[in-house]
Design a protein around this nucleic acid. Structure first.
Length: 678
DNA sequence: CCGTATATAAACACTA
DNA sequence: TTAGTGTTTATATACG
């Protein structure tokens, strides 16, 4: 296992080495990473373009629906997307997203392929490339079909709605119904989007777009998340308005979107439902070896469908299953070619899994975003502006404006921190194989965590992302959150699984870790109980060990200890959460969250106990602020770069509530690119 | 390079 | 005997 994590950590690294240099990351980035070329902009723009087209399409349909006059001209909209200034070389592909098959590579007939293979004109590597191209081309063709179907479905659905609306023009329509309809519509859009992503994927695989794993995540993701929600919202508004105006009844419209399985969930307005669904989806993804692909059965074969051999690059037709089997054994026996093809297929699967993970994340983000939106309007726009300001004005010498912009929109959705983490994780390798939580929060101050704990909480509860806290921190929090400040081991387990999707798998591993931590750290005290034993937290011990951690930097320790008192690991998390709660989006959003409050209290307690001088702490009425000044101290002394960071948030606190987040966010992204943050 | 902190794995003991 | 709980040791990694 450990070995795994090691390699994974490495693979995670590439996420953003360059970004890491931005603020505080510079000094300690010793981790291995792959280079981070700069093709991302192109890829990102490409995706952007595709999304744009999807939206265009949707708009078109909407227009149609509302005006009921103009004919559909979806295809004509295809080339209206924007182009990246840097993407000149790729513009060709960018401009023809839907008809990529027209691009250079030509589809080779099975016979030709066989010939090529048999004559061994090509090296294995060349074969791979060729196969990839062929696969991509075929996929693209399929995708085109799918596109059409999607469009038709969308159209059909909307037409149905119109009809229903007309039919029931007299009756009244509940908002739930409207939203259900909208969701259905959204599902369709999502599907389109997914297809487009697959499309992009194909291009990547084909080598037409070179995107490094580490890079894709950030730009692509930020783009997708950034753009879709906002624009979707607009679309929905349009839809809503139209509906409201016409006052039609579409009670059964929900059924109109039966199109693809994805739309089935179509939850009326309950975000929890959505989250649940997505959570399940994540679970599904864990069983990767599972039934995602076709399962062999006595009468059918995964490589045999509709009378055609589905071996990559082979489309041989067979009337008879047995002849297919014969073919399979003869033509696709174990040899270099098959091995190479198998490797290619593995890559394909990997990519798809990666894509799936991304899409899941996006879905989650969208859900979260929508949920948030209901309670907290206009989260998206604000951060956006502020971010750019903050980023540009202060710490972000390296922050590329174009990137920071698209990034921001995502923020409100998925927790800043986690989101970025997710980026790296998902992008770099896969969700499940992250390295150990090495990254301690000793970098404390730059704990970007999320602005709103409740959001973070939700995020971690539903997203299979490793929380950026140490086991000790988590255990402590679990215990402190409990009414009696004591928990049994099993209760601690339950807390972990309840609060973090990540801990719903690999139970043996993390449970062992929990036990290990309980035993290892003096701060966890086992108390015999009537019915067994419970674990409690010895705060004094807990705080004791922090100085030790920091002791690494002798000169600073004093200052840190006195002014901060809190340790990197544990309180770091809390600090961050606190800080972010109070400072950023907090004012409005966080109030409702009990967890938040308890957390804040815990932190405050911790701070009070720990901060001897209390100057930083005492002066603050708000729990969130105290950490920051302290952090400032540290940063000034320990890391020259950080001050800027936190100066920013600090100064901004008074002025703008949202900006700090993003500042952090950016940092965090960098951080997380390198590591897991634990 | 070293020490510390953490994560992970695993062996082992104890107990219900 | 088994599963759960605790303890302990070993190893790897990140970081100061």
């Amino acid at each position: 296992m450990m070995q795994e994590s090691g390699t994974e950590a490495t693979s995670n690294g590439p996420a953003n080495e360059n970004g890491g240099a931005s603020v505080e990351g510079v000094p300690r980035e010793g981790r291995p990473k792959s280079a981070a070329p700069s093709a991302e902009v192109t890829a990102a723009d490409f995706l952007h373009l595709q999304q744009h087209q999807a939206l265009q399409m949707a708009r078109q349909i909407l227009l149609q629906q509302q005006q009921q006059s103009q004919p559909q001209q979806l295809q004509s909209q295809q080339n209206t997307g924007r182009k990246s200034p840097k993407a000149n070389d790729k513009q060709q592909s960018l401009q023809v997203p839907v008809s990529v098959a027209m691009m250079t590579p030509q589809v080779i007939t099975p016979q030709q392929m066989q010939q090529i293979l048999q004559q061994q004109v090509l090296s294995p590597q060349q074969l791979q490339v060729l196969l990839q191209q062929q696969q991509a081309l075929m996929l693209q063709q399929q995708l085109q079909e799918f596109y059409k179907k999607q469009q038709e479905q969308l159209h059909l659905q909307l037409l149905q709605q119109q009809q229903q609306q007309q039919q029931h023009a007299g009756s009244k329509q509940s908002k739930e119904q409207v939203s259900a309809q909208q969701l259905a519509f959204q599902q369709q859009l999502l599907q389109v989007q997914q297809v487009q992503q697959q499309h992009l994927l194909n291009l990547q695989r084909q080598g037409l777009l070179s995107i490094q794993p580490g890079q894709t995540g950030l730009p692509l993701h930020s783009l997708t998340q950034g753009m879709i929600p906002t624009e979707l919202q607009q679309l929905w508004k349009e839809v809503t308005n139209a509906h409201v105006k016409e006052e039609h009844n579409n009670s059964s419209s929900n059924n109109g979107h039966r199109g693809l399985d994805l739309s089935s969930p179509a939850p009326p307005k309950n975000p929890l439902l959505n989250q649940h669904a997505s959570t399940n989806g994540q679970y599904m993804s864990h069983k990767r070896e599972g039934s995602t692909l076709e399962e062999p059965s006595p009468h059918s074969h995964p490589l045999y469908g509709h009378g055609v051999c589905k071996w990559p690059g082979c489309e041989a037709v067979f009337d008879d299953f047995h002849s297919f089997l014969k073919h399979l054994n003869n033509e696709h026996a174990l040899d270099d070619r098959s091995t190479a093809q198998c490797r290619v297929q593995m890559q394909v699967v990997q990519q798809l899994e990666l894509q799936l993970a991304k899409d899941k994340e996006r879905l989650q983000a969208m859900m979260t975003h929508l949920h948030v939106k209901s309670t907290e309007p206009k989260a998206t726009p604000q951060p956006l502006n502020l971010v750019s300001n903050v980023t540009l004005s202060k710490s972000a010498p390296e922050a590329s404006p174009p990137l920071s912009l698209p990034q921001t929109p995502t923020t409100p959705t998925a927790p800043l921190t986690p989101l970025s983490q997710t980026h790296s994780v998902i992008t770099a390798t896969n969700l499940h194989s992250m390295g150990p939580m090495r990254r301690r929060y000793s970098e404390k101050y730059n704990m970007p965590i999320s602005p709103d704990i409740s959001q973070n909480k939700e995020f971690y509860m539903n997203t299979d992302v490793r929380p950026p806290f140490t086991y000790a921190s988590l255990i402590r929090q679990a215990i402190l959150e409990s009414p009696e400040k004591q928990l049994t081991l099993n209760e601690i387990y339950n807390w972990f699984t309840r609060m973090f999707a990540y801990f719903r798998r690999n139970a043996a591993t993390w449970k062992n870790a929990v036990r290990h931590n309980l035993s290892l750290h003096k701060c966890f005290v086992r108390v015999e109980n009537v019915k067994g034993a419970v674990w409690t937290v010895d705060e004094i011990e807990f705080q004791k060990r922090r100085p030790q951690k920091i002791s690494g930097s002798p000169a600073l320790v004093k200052n840190i200890q006195t002014s901060l008192g809190y340790g990197p690991t544990l309180s770091a998390a809390f600090q961050a959460s606190m800080a972010e709660n109070n400072i950023p989006l907090y004012t409005t959003a966080s109030i409702g969250s009990p967890t938040l409050n308890s957390l804040a209290n815990a932190i405050r307690e911790e701070m009070n106990g720990a901060m001897d001088h209390g100057n930083s702490n005492g002066s603050d009425s708000s729990p969130g602020r105290s950490p920051l000044p302290a952090m400032h101290h540290i940063s000034v002394k320990e890391e020259p770069l950080d001050p800027e960071d936190h100066d920013g948030p600090l100064s901004l606190v008074t002025t703008a509530n949202h900006s700090p987040d993003f500042d952090h966010h950016r940092d965090y992204d960098d951080e997380q690119g390198h590591d897991d943050m634990l």
